[in-house]
Design a protein around this nucleic acid. Structure first.
Lengths: 339, 339
DNA sequence: TATCCATATGTTACCGGTAACATAACAAGC
DNA sequence: GCTTGTTATGTTACCGGTAACATATGGATA
């Protein structure tokens, strides 16, 4: 016995396919009694509509495509969670992809996702390739860039300036009295969020006349906790007099912290440590890590609301509009910088 | 100018739609010269096939649906990553959903995903509702359960026994000389992986004649690092003489560890701590946390290979077959238990 | 009672591809 | 030269829904 289809339901209920179609969609004109009768038949036959047919016919996929660098990152995971839960109220599903921080992989995924005719495409700003930028600009669906403030936005943006935030964090360290501040960043980064943070650090150092920036680009993103441990060793070898280490992200900073403790280096007494992103580990560890607090869920929520608002009747107009939503972030001083 | 479709390409290339369709699929009979000509036209027109139409007509969605309790969990994220990268070699995309550890949400998502006619459904064993079990059993696509060893498998399984692993870990603590071992677990858990771990702990304690198990069910899953801190306070209040705390998961254990350190309790001198899952934080922290090492990526990879192998021509036969793949796990003694 | 309108349902023609079968063209075998 | 087989392409009929328009039905209104 094959899966039943709409025509089967229609026959069993003594109505036309179209009436069944109406019974299944909220907000269509149909007599309540008829709807009840049809829903009973649907239940009895275990009928479930075929989404592919619905998509083709109605020209709406019910998908939102989202691309993040990595799923194995609590911040992006939180953004995706919030995005998903926000849009599912509008009957949308989120198709998630991860780029692994690779521009080529991102390019391929953007292409594949666009074939699915998503109702919107949400991407993480992270050094797109030229081809990716072209596809995004030419896409006939709304595009939302998130997690940074792009120099030249494709369309909508939900983000903040990583550069400014890193600059503020660096200034905080300087105000606290630290003078020989090193930065642990990522290699192979160009136009990425990590690069922006590094730029913010460098700008603040130069502006303060503290000599040349001490930048150690340790590994390709993402830098893990254990890599953070290695990074501190190399930083100490290169600049033995360093009195503060600022990291491109919290996991890296946690590694730096534990490595310092393993070597008997007092934090923050002899060495300050700061991260970026406000991962849970940073709140929980001893001392807690000074960081830039980013409300990852808020980014996902705002992106979701934006996407939901774009899929109305006024689609054609809305697609062309541009919304730029700035998410507030802040430096949170904690124990690791003398909190 | 509207998006071009296959008929447009066919006209421009002077062939039929069908020939264009063949040119676009690997392994179909077509003259190389014709294919080249058609691909050039495809390129020129920027043609991209509509997946929805392809799905409807060919009856294959190109989707694998995967359900995990949470994305904000490095272990599940890693499984999903490995699953995704394994199946994309077969031209499949993974549709990811998160249940938030809620059976009702899982039930809804399974229903929604099945409407998309995925080529396989991968779910995390975690106390399914009765309705969910019914849908899974009745599904006309392959179903893979992962991350535990279900008592009564629906179809395929890629997992390990959480109960056995927790029992082994408890025995390890007993061998190390700990006698007053408490367990921090989850509330509202029935048939979940957390409950299995608790059962394994309780079984080992009873078997060893160490008196009644000391179980503190702290909060609904997932238990966060910060909740782990609270949990230790409550454990100490309830059983002041406790000499070891075993946790349902690593993040919880990390919280317990930091809370102990914050209170000046020596780990492992006065208190041992153990987790479950081998999260990176457990390797990196001081002392490193004894835990059960689970190769999350391997689970995703094996599930992916299974799914890919199931979508051949012999579909009908394969769907009914049952593969049970056991993933090896092991207790890894580290500093937090005197390791 | 005739007209009009609102409500409820039916009819038709697709959406954009692919499966399955049909056909054309040409080389090989006898 | 005729059959047979192989390769390359075309034709037809859907896949399972929904948009758009047509139609039937039954008050309310004049």
């Amino acid at each position: 016995m094959s899966r039943s289809k709409m025509a089967d339901v229609a026959r069993a209920a003594g109505v036309s396919k179209m009436t069944v179609s109406r019974a299944l969609r909220e907000g269509s004109v149909i007599a309540p009694a008829t709807r009840q009768r049809i829903l009973a038949v649907v239940e009895r036959l275990g009928y479930a509509p075929e989404e592919a047919a619905r998509n083709l016919s109605s020209r709406r996929s019910g998908f939102v495509a989202a691309l993040v660098p990595s799923l194995n990152n609590p911040q992006f995971a939180e953004t995706v969670r919030a995005l998903t839960e926000t849009v599912e109220g509008s009957g949308l599903q989120v198709l998630i992809g991860h780029t692994n921080y690779e521009a080529a992989r991102e390019e391929r995924l953007v292409g594949e996702f666009l074939r699915r005719r998503p109702e919107a495409l949400v991407v993480t700003v992270d050094g797109h390739s030229a081809a990716t930028r072209r596809m995004l600009a030419a896409a006939d669906v709304p595009v939302v860039e998130m997690w940074d403030w792009p120099t030249r936005p494709v369309r909508h943006v939900v983000g903040f300036s990583n550069k400014d935030a890193a600059r503020d964090l660096t200034r905080h360290l300087i105000e606290r009295g630290y003078r020989r501040i090193a930065f642990v960043g990522e290699t192979e980064s160009d136009g990425t969020r990590g690069a922006k943070r590094r730029d913010g650090y460098a700008a603040a150092i130069r502006r303060s006349g503290l000599g040349p920036p001490r930048i150690h680009n340790h590994a390709p993103p993402p830098i893990s906790m254990l890599q953070g441990r290695d990074a501190l060793r190399e930083v100490l070898r290169q600049w033995p007099d360093v009195d503060a280490v600022m990291c491109v992200s919290d996991p890296c900073a946690f590694g730096v912290l534990t490595q310092a403790q393993a070597q008997g280096i007092d934090v923050p007494g002899r060495l300050a440590v700061a991260g970026f992103g406000d991962f849970e580990v940073s709140r929980c560890c001893l001392p807690a890590l000074t960081t830039v607090v980013v409300d990852a869920a808020e980014i996902g929520r705002r992106a979701g609301l934006l996407v939901a608002s774009l899929r109305g009747r006024g689609n054609e107009g809305a697609v062309r509009k541009q919304e730029l939503i700035r998410i507030p972030v802040r430096v949170e001083p904690r124990g690791s910088t003398g909190g």
